[in-house]
């Protein structure tokens, strides 16, 4: 196997969310990049400690909402005013107030789609395989463990990084290597 098709990470488990956030911040201040945190539930201060940029999901949601709004207005105008004009109670054929409920619903629906699929796409999910799955201990990330991953050049000695993580309070550290995505 050649090193170029392989990716490596140092994984470190911490006992508490606070220890994880603290260690993440300190590792970032030491200059490590491309790290990620894993916890069974949303982590307070996790994204700040990782130094992540603001999420792009709100803009996708806004885009979805505006798309839904335009779709609904165009659809109802086309159907009720041009394609099949129907006189309902003597109201004008282009009755904007009557269209607001549908417009609202479609805006919400498209915004929800945008959030759901946008989040999946931005997180590159679903991900059937990832090298960190090679580590059995890492399974605790979905029940009770708080993990930090630090990218590591494949083939290089990871002892220094592992020692640093241990000194920051990691209860166990491990090196995983697997095929690039």
């Amino acid at each position: 196997m050649e090193a170029t098709v392989l990716d490596s990470w140092v994984l470190a488990e911490f006992g508490t969310p606070d220890a994880l956030v603290d260690a993440t911040r300190q590792m970032r201040e030491k200059g490590f990049q491309g790290m990620d945190t894993y916890s069974p539930y949303p982590l307070h201060g996790g994204s700040e400690a990782l130094g992540l940029p603001p999420s792009r999901v709100p803009f996708i949601a806004l885009g979805g909402a505006l798309t839904g709004m335009c779709t609904a207005l165009a659809m109802q105008t086309w159907m009720n005013t041009y394609d099949y004009p129907l006189n309902i109670g003597g109201r004008p054929l282009l009755s904007l107030p009557a269209w607001v409920p549908i417009t609202f619903e479609l805006s919400v629906l498209f915004a929800a789609f945008g959030i759901f699929f946008g989040l999946l796409a931005l997180s590159r999910l679903p991900q059937p395989y990832h090298p960190v799955f090679e580590s059995d201990a890492f399974r605790s990330a979905s029940t009770h463990g708080y993990w930090l991953s630090v990218p590591q050049a494949t083939g290089q000695d990871a002892t220094a990084v592992m020692d640093q993580l241990k000194s920051l309070g990691a209860t166990q550290v491990t090196l995983v290597t697997g095929e690039k995505e």
């Binding site: 109670g89 003597g90 107030p97 009557a98």
Partner: peptide
């Protein structure tokens, strides 16, 4: 505001 308006407007 819109709920109130729509009901009055549509019932006429």
């Amino acid at each position: 505001a819109f709920s109130q308006f729509l009901l009055v407007w549509i019932a006429n």
